[in-house]
Design a protein around this nucleic acid. Structure first.
Lengths: 137, 137
DNA sequence: TTCAAAATTGAAATCATTGTAAATAATAAA
DNA sequence: TTTATTATTTACAATGATTTCAATTTTGAA
């Protein structure tokens, strides 16, 4: 609790009860919660909670660099508190998202951490050649 | 045109004019169109076109294995006609998605095909350990 | 305590996608 | 060709996640 307060303050975020709870929820939940998941978990403790607060807060956290949206499938957005880039594993049955080791290198292995791998998806993000030509980057 | 007809028929899909146009659109557009993109392009030729037809058709194509949804960012769904798995590059400025070579191996390079790489995103998909334990797979 | 700024809230709006049922077109049988 | 059957397309309503916005509440400084 005090630890979370410190982390938020270091990033210039006022540690309101809602923000602390949301951060706590993101830390504890190993499956990368959606906005809905977060809302349902915290609503039990703070019944006056608004969904807008969840969206405001994850946006604030993302802007401040302590949170990263993970968009893999189904149009759903999940959130990852780890700032360091690392591979993810998404279950096609339950939709949960797990973190994998950063320097993971899977060649022929079909299994990792007990998960059965069926498909790999790699994407690079940046500025495409067309947009680079238009403006200076 | 005749070529597209054949491809569809081989997959057991009746080649209606809408389906041919949608397939054609997916082939020509190098940026992986969204459902909205497809609608706007084809609407010019077929003004009676319904958005539902776009969604029906991309679902049909996906089920038949000739199309793959690409979900990278922004909650948007784009479509990729290539059936073979390969890396993608998504532009953070314009949102367009480009195909990259299948066996691409980028280590320190910051550039590929003229695109500036800022971030890499790797994801594995399959059945997680929890779901495997529950049922047999 | 008072006041202004920041944070939270609920309700309405938006927007992509899905569901549904009617209309239309294509195909097969008589 | 006519009719019946089936597949396809369409319009419109419904859904659900997210955003907008104005009003209310909380906070912190003076």
């Amino acid at each position: 609790m005090e630890k979370i307060k410190k982390i938020l303050e270091e990033k210039g975020i006022k540690p309101s009860i809602q923000r602390i709870k949301i951060f706590e929820c993101l830390m504890c939940d190993g499956d990368h919660p959606t906005a809905k998941d977060i809302y349902e978990i915290i609503f039990k403790e703070i019944p006056t909670l608004s969904k807008t607060t969840i969206y405001n807060t994850v946006k604030l956290f993302t802007d401040k660099g302590i949170l990263k949206p993970v968009r893999i499938r189904e149009g759903e957005v999940r959130y990852d508190i780890e700032s360091d880039s690392h591979p993810h594993f998404r279950c096609n049955k339950c939709g949960k998202v797990f973190d994998l080791e950063k320097n993971l290198l899977i060649k022929e292995k079909k299994e990792i951490d007990g998960h059965l791998i069926e498909e790999k998806c790699v994407c690079y993000l940046g500025v495409c050649r067309n947009c680079r030509r238009k403006r200076e980057h």
